[in-house]
Amino acid sequence: MPRFFFWMAEVMSKKIDAELVKKVAKLSRLELTETEVAEFANQLSAILDYVEKMEQLDTTDVQPLAHCLPISNCLRDDCAKPSLGTEKILENAPDTDGDFFKVPKILD
């Protein structure tokens, strides 16, 4: 079969279609253009195809490793220290109302 058809087959079996990209974008709170949606569908599919190489390995008895540290119980004594203060914390805020951060009306 010519190379082209392999490529076509790959595109057809895409892991992530536009709809899924939109769903993930919503979860990620990212507004995407239609062009970006199409682009991400292709790129993420290609990356996931590659990533699935992990499936070659049998990991039945392998523990997941979230980090490599040999430590636990990094604890702090319960002492209160001075805070940063309202002015300082609001310095970087894009919008404020008095002592508050300000956002458009939140509707549940």
Partner: peptide, 14 residues
């Protein structure tokens, strides 16, 4: 399929 599997393979690499 992805995250948990990756953590397991990470252990193999270590």
């Amino acid at each position: 399929a992805y995250y948990l599997k990756a953590l397991k393979v990470r252990n193999l690499i270590r």
